[in-house]
Design a protein around this nucleic acid. Structure first.
Length: 802
RNA sequence: GCGGAUGUGGUGGAACUGGUAGACACGCGGCGUUCAGGUCGCCGUGAGCUAAUCACUCGUGGAGGUUCGAAUCCUCUCAUCCGCACCA
């Protein structure tokens, strides 16, 4: 059948123009009685042009946004750009162009393509985090946290990337390597800026129970926070007349502590011993990369310090060591070693010939890390170790030798970066007043344009003398600006708050407005942000709520993590040459086809494998739908007379899409349902009333709209004269969801043997009678006996035959 | 090592609370339209056994189990993927 051609290149820009001209997707902050719904995709990092992952996340988010609008919600669906950051800067250095220039070009390309995809964005709220009108408020928020003591400067052993020439947060170190460039990270002792996220560890943990997030993301956050309960125990060292505290989760094994170990970074190591052996060991472990030091089966090296500490439970003097298997950044940087019941201490004791003393019974050999009754533990002998644990803590507590304690893996968020392309930290260093906040009315502290922004181990801003030299806001004397910039994750920790009131130039947001929209009802993005961004944003919201700047306790009520689109089972990457560019796709097949296909290959939460042939199938389907409306004029789409199977199928499709999309984001089965409807329409259109065909086409257009908004709008308007996005989401008539008969399944011993037609409202006894009447049943029973009959009403009858 | 997820036709994937395994699509095959190919329309397509779209048997990574009935629940096991990893 030749006929009209489906031409997305003509249809799609026409609707995009209309939506832009009429500002269709802009939403007011004024409550109009409809329930609000804040739908948000994680903001893109503008680098180059959008890739297939962007197309996917916006295809999912846009389907949800459209669905909620047509279900009566007032939907906020904004977009912005995470414009500051290392990749943009590195790219700029490579190409010799200013990061502002290349970032803004990239943003322009993203804007062009997002519009060409027909995403329903409220463009009036758009911003880039690199714009002074945005980062002015990033600085303002930093100062509020600074005033509250939640942003502080401290000297610490921090992660340093020698390639990017900057410090990194713990979260940005993956397997001992820089998250961005893959270079092995070094430890450096530097003075840096931190956010006190550890103050919020318990709340970040507890409130995970209040949000609807994928289980695996919740688990990852739990593990990252890494709360462990135990005790802090004091060991006295006579040599320096000092008390050393250690954290332990196993105070029940204290009687088995036979030595004591300090991290090489521990400040007292060199005070305890200045032997060349110790000095050399400390020097060596500090130059070793984090990766090598953390290697799995690394030998347990270490050196004796020649001093002892007293075990508080029995007064025994136990030898002290320095060893790199103890980490300065966890606990107190010193541990009591119980070789009989800890695999690491055991390995160290074996290598260095130290005493191994069993204090918990159980297991065939040592080390034994399980539970059991205590031995060699004086008055606690014979007690179950778990019970004794609390008793020992209480006993130590009587004279201050120990107390219950909780320790976390989570460490404070290191936010300063020695890089150019980021938000300046708004403080000055004054010789008399120290660190002084820049007053609010002098914000933003603008990022100056510098010629040379290459990394040099200190911020490139330090070279901008005119900018650096300033006056102290407090005393008016000469002072120098802070030259470090902020981690980009600071920018993205509050952007969703700014969307609510993006044009406000008096405050980051109006309190009423932010409370009206927050929290984000549905957040959509990649699982790669499970820890970094999602933890930081949660911290920000909690901290800002404590400062009474907003009411929400959590930023994202519900989270949807989309899976990665692969090709031939492998991740798309430039080096493999298997990248599919959204731009090419939209040019060759149109945005509707590209969006539908990506939502059709599988459940969007899972990965989907790209296939060049597969997309043709979806394109064919959209063409078929388009051609089904050929020659139709605007008019009624109400089916007349008795409902046909086609009308029933349309109601079935309405019900299916409503539940699949609305309840479980199952875009793939939603689209499949519309395909089924269109297939039935082609098969049955010559046998049913013309009004039924019109109803089926209009229904298909209405249902495909969240996935293919241009074609949905085009066909719906052609048939009804109405705008589909202003039309409420269709409701299935329950009476039409059932046909008059159903296929009754007849089973023998659970195996299907026959299907017979039965009335939908059949009585239980009648259903069994109909099944019993099956001719195939007699042959099956043959000689045997029906000992039991199971009737599942409206479904099947199972005969148990012996 | 610890934690989590996933295994279904030639392929991507369906199957809601245990109740017709394989929806829908790709691919493949057939018929029609066409000089032909493509497009388009219709039909078929898990495997085995068959002349057969009669019937029967097998079948959801593997082995057991619970149940009238298991892709779905339980136990063990294998494989793949993802997090964390000397965290005391």
């Amino acid at each position: 059948m030749p006929g009209e051609r489906y031409d997305p290149q003509e249809i799609e820009p026409r609707w995009q123009q209309l939506w832009a001209d009429e500002r269709t997707w802009e939403v007011s902050n004024v409550d109009d009685g409809r329930p609000k719904s804040y739908v948000l995709e994680m903001l893109p990092y503008p680098s180059g042009e959008p890739h297939i992952g962007h197309l996917k996340v916006y295809s999912v988010g846009d389907a949800i946004a459209h669905f909620r609008r047509r279900n009566g919600h007032r939907v906020l669906h904004p977009l912005g750009y995470d414009a500051f950051g290392l990749p943009a800067e590195n790219h700029a250095i490579r190409t010799g162009r200013h990061p502002r220039q290349s970032t803004e070009e990239s943003i322009a390309e993203f804007q062009r393509q997002f519009r060409r995809w027909g995403i329903s964005i409220d463009w009036s709220r758009e911003f880039g985090t690199h714009e002074p009108s945005y980062y002015r408020w990033t600085q303002w928020l930093f100062l509020r946290l600074f005033e509250a003591g939640l942003a502080y400067r401290d000297q610490a052993a921090v992660n340093w990337c020698p390639k990017d020439q900057t410090v990194l947060a713990n979260e940005q170190v993956i397997d001992g390597r820089c998250e961005r460039c893959g270079t092995a990270v070094e430890k450096r002792d530097l003075e840096q800026w931190f956010f006190k996220i550890t103050d919020y560890a318990d709340r970040l943990l507890d409130d995970l129970d209040t949000i609807d997030w994928p289980q695996h993301v919740v688990t990852m956050q739990r593990n990252w926070i890494g709360r462990s309960e135990g005790a802090r125990v004091t060991f006295h060292c006579d040599a320096l007349d000092t008390d050393y505290e250690v954290f332990t989760t196993r105070p029940d094994t204290l009687f088995g502590a036979t030595f004591f170990v300090m991290a090489p970074e521990h400040p007292d190591v060199l005070r305890l011993s200045d032997s060349s052996e110790v000095t050399e060991y400390v020097r060596r472990s500090q130059t070793e990369s984090a990766e090598d030091r953390g290697a799995e089966d690394k030998e347990k090296t270490g050196v004796a310090l020649g001093a002892t500490v007293a075990n508080p439970v029995n007064g025994e003097q136990i030898p002290m060591f320095v060893a790199d298997y103890v980490l300065m950044e966890y606990g107190t940087g010193a541990v009591m070693a119980v070789p009989a019941h800890d695999t690491r201490d055991f390995a160290f004791a074996e290598k260095h010939g130290l005493e191994i003393r069993r204090v918990v019974e159980g297991g065939h050999e040592l080390p034994y890390t399980g539970d059991g009754p205590l031995v060699n533990s004086q008055r606690f002998d014979g007690k179950d170790n778990r019970e004794a644990l609390a008793e020992i803590i209480a006993w130590l507590g009587e004279d201050g030798r120990g107390e219950p304690a909780v320790n976390y893996r989570l460490r404070d968020w290191l936010l300063s970066r020695q890089r150019y392309w980021g938000c300046p930290i708004p403080v000055v260093h004054c010789p008399t007043d120290g660190i002084v906040a820049v007053p609010d009315d002098q914000l933003p502290v603008e990022l100056p344009d510098v010629e040379d922004y290459a990394p040099k181990g200190r911020s490139p801003l330090a070279a901008a003398e005119d900018w650096v030299n300033t006056t102290c806001p407090k005393c008016g004397g000469p002072a120098r600006r802070e030259t470090d910039t902020m981690d980009t994750f600071v920018d993205s920790s509050w952007y969703f708050l700014r969307y609510t009131d993006a044009l406000n130039d008096q405050a980051p947001w109006g309190r009423d407005v932010v409370d009206e929209w927050m929290a984000v009802d549905q957040y959509i993005g990649g699982v790669e942000h499970a820890i970094l961004h999602l933890m930081y944003a949660r911290f920000f919201v909690k901290a800002l709520a404590d400062l009474d700047l907003l009411s929400a306790q959590e930023p994202f009520d519900a989270l949807f993590t989309q899976g990665m689109v692969t090709r031939d089972g492998a991740k798309m990457s430039k080096s493999k040459g298997n990248v599919v560019s959204p731009r090419d796709l939209v040019e060759s097949h149109g945005a509707d086809t590209a969006r539908c296909y990506i939502l059709y290959v599988g459940h969007p939460a899972e990965g989907g494998d790209w296939s060049d042939d597969g997309i043709e199938g979806i394109h064919r389907f959209l063409q078929r739908l388009y051609r089904a409306a050929e020659g139709m004029q605007a008019g009624s789409v109400e089916p007349e007379g008795e409902p046909s199977d086609l009308v029933r199928k349309a109601h079935w499709a309405i019900d299916k899409v409503t539940r699949d999309l609305g309840e479980r984001f199952a875009t793939h089965t939603s689209i499949a349902a519309v395909i089924e409807l269109v297939n039935d329409l082609y098969r049955q259109r010559d046998q049913v009333d013309a009004s039924h065909v019109r109803f089926a086409v209009a229904t298909a257009a209405s249902l495909i709209f969240p996935f293919a908004p241009h074609l949905g709008s085009e066909l719906y308007e052609r048939l009804t004269g109405d705008r589909v996005w202003e039309t409420p989401w269709p409701v299935a008539d329950p009476a039409l969801l059932q046909s008059e008969t159903f296929e009754l399944i007849v089973q023998v011993n659970g195996k299907l043997i026959d299907r017979v037609a039965a009335p939908t409202d059949v009585e239980r006894d009648e259903q069994e009678r109909l099944a019993r009447a099956s001719t195939k049943l007699a042959a099956r029973v043959d000689g045997g006996e029906i000992v039991k009959t199971i009737v599942v009403p409206g479904r099947l009858v199972n005969f148990v035959v012996q």
